[in-house]
Simulated scan of single mutants.
Amino acid sequence: MDQIEFNPLFPIGGKNDAFAQYFTGQSYLKMLTTERLSIGNVTFEPGCRNNWHIHHKGGQILLCTDGRGYYQEWGKPAKELHPGDVVNIPPEVKHWHGAAPDCWFTHLAVEIPAKGAFNEWLEPVSHEEYAQL
């Protein structure tokens, strides 16, 4: 990792092995807190992205802190993300997020608490879809 180009604000944490099956490429996860609200620092190597997924009932907020990445809702064009960007993901919206092909990317993932909330992991973002960024 080139520290000149990528100097993360929060600790990167370990390889995100628990969720590796839902990612294309390598990601890292450092849980910052699980008290009252779950906030994870998620770091994506260049080209890494998570599968399409849906947050049922609770939703999620992404606080972009480092690098350059993308967020895309099903049926809509992808949005480029930079440090300081905030993405409010309502419940029941199919989407994905991850790094640009040539840049590391980090965001804080804030899970919105709700009774019965859960994530539904879906198909990977295809190489063809990702190449259209």
Score class of each variant (00 low, 15 high):
residue 49 R to F: 04
residue 6 F to M: 11
residue 10 F to Y: 15
residue 22 Y to E: 02
residue 109 A to M: 03
residue 18 A to N: 13
residue 28 Y to K: 05
residue 63 L to Q: 09
residue 126 S to N: 07
residue 119 N to Y: 00
residue 78 A to R: 11
residue 99 A to L: 06
residue 113 P to N: 06
residue 1 M to Y: 08
residue 70 Y to K: 07
residue 70 Y to R: 09
residue 60 Q to I: 05
residue 6 F to G: 11
residue 81 L to F: 05
residue 41 N to H: 15
residue 43 T to D: 03
residue 67 G to Y: 04
residue 94 K to L: 09
residue 75 G to F: 02
residue 102 D to H: 12
residue 4 I to R: 11
residue 1 M to R: 13
residue 129 E to T: 06
residue 51 N to A: 13
residue 75 G to M: 01
residue 40 G to C: 01
residue 26 Q to V: 13
residue 118 F to C: 05
residue 34 T to W: 02
residue 80 E to D: 02
residue 90 P to K: 15
residue 89 I to F: 08
residue 85 D to K: 01
residue 85 D to Y: 02
residue 34 T to V: 03
residue 112 I to V: 15
residue 123 E to L: 07
residue 107 H to F: 04
residue 4 I to S: 13
residue 27 S to N: 11
residue 31 M to C: 03
residue 34 T to A: 13
residue 103 C to A: 15
residue 114 A to V: 04
residue 70 Y to Q: 03
residue 11 P to N: 14
residue 42 V to Y: 05
residue 74 W to A: 13
residue 63 L to A: 10
residue 121 W to G: 05
residue 21 Q to C: 03
residue 38 S to F: 03
residue 92 E to K: 12
residue 15 K to P: 06
residue 19 F to D: 10
residue 70 Y to P: 02
residue 127 H to C: 02
residue 58 G to E: 03
residue 118 F to S: 11
residue 42 V to R: 03
residue 100 A to P: 06
residue 54 I to L: 12
residue 92 E to H: 15
residue 79 K to R: 15
residue 85 D to N: 15
residue 88 N to W: 08
residue 111 E to F: 10
residue 125 V to E: 05
residue 112 I to H: 11
residue 124 P to Y: 09
residue 6 F to N: 14
residue 12 I to H: 08
residue 7 N to I: 00
residue 24 T to F: 06
residue 21 Q to L: 07
residue 104 W to A: 01
residue 70 Y to M: 07
residue 133 L to P: 00
residue 95 H to D: 05
residue 118 F to D: 12
residue 77 P to Q: 02
residue 71 Y to L: 07
residue 65 T to W: 03
residue 30 K to H: 15
residue 78 A to C: 08
residue 75 G to V: 03
residue 114 A to M: 04
residue 91 P to K: 14
residue 60 Q to W: 09
residue 47 G to C: 04
residue 28 Y to G: 05
residue 133 L to M: 12
residue 32 L to P: 07
residue 118 F to G: 01
residue 73 E to L: 10
residue 2 D to L: 05
residue 56 H to S: 04
residue 11 P to G: 12
